[in-house]
Amino acid sequence: MNIHKRTRLTLLDRQEIGRLYQSRLWKVTQLAECFRVSRPAIYAILKRARLPESAPRDSTNHRFKTLQYGLKRLAKVE
């Protein structure tokens, strides 16, 4: 599993946030205080929880893997 080294919420934390919010007993501000993240982060987690996306996200930047980026970099080196 490729998780960023400074991640604040693990997969289990995200699932717990989704479960607590769906129980309708917790508000977004309460979840943000409990898990020590911002409210926009909670909203993003809830948005992803509505989708069937349970796998952790990969933190690699795909721009660096493209051929166009490699050719531009090679031209700068030469």
Rank of each mutant, 00 (worst) to 15 (best):
M1V: 04
M1P: 10
N2D: 02
N2K: 14
H4A: 06
H4E: 07
K5S: 02
K5R: 09
R6W: 04
R6M: 08
L9F: 01
L9H: 02
T10S: 04
T10P: 09
L11W: 05
L12E: 14
L12N: 12
D13C: 09
R14E: 06
Q15A: 07
Q15N: 10
E16T: 01
E16Q: 15
I17K: 13
I17T: 04
I17F: 05
G18S: 10
G18L: 10
R19V: 08
R19S: 06
L20N: 00
Y21W: 02
Y21I: 07
Q22H: 09
Q22T: 02
S23R: 13
S23K: 12
R24E: 09
L25P: 01
L25Q: 15
L25W: 06
W26K: 14
W26M: 12
K27F: 01
K27Y: 04
K27I: 08
V28G: 06
V28R: 15
Q30E: 13
Q30S: 05
Q30H: 07
Q30M: 08
L31V: 00
E33K: 15
E33V: 05
V37W: 07
V37I: 10
S38A: 10
S38F: 03
R39E: 11
R39T: 09
P40Y: 02
A41R: 15
I42T: 07
Y43H: 11
Y43S: 07
Y43V: 08
A44G: 04
I45D: 05
I45V: 05
I45S: 01
I45K: 11
L46P: 06
K47M: 09
R48A: 02
R48T: 04
R50G: 04
R50A: 00
L51H: 04
P52D: 15
P52Q: 15
P52H: 14
E53Y: 07
S54F: 05
S54L: 12
P56D: 08
P56Q: 13
R57W: 08
D58W: 02
D58E: 00
D58A: 03
D58T: 02
D58L: 03
S59T: 06
H62M: 14
H62C: 13
H62D: 11
F64T: 05
F64A: 11
K65S: 03
K65H: 07
T66N: 11
T66Y: 03
T66D: 03
L67C: 09
Q68S: 02
Q68E: 06
Q68I: 10
Q68V: 05
Y69D: 01
Y69M: 06
Y69W: 07
L71K: 14
R73W: 02
R73P: 00
R73N: 03
L74A: 00
A75T: 02
K76V: 10
K76S: 07
K76L: 15
V77F: 08
E78S: 03
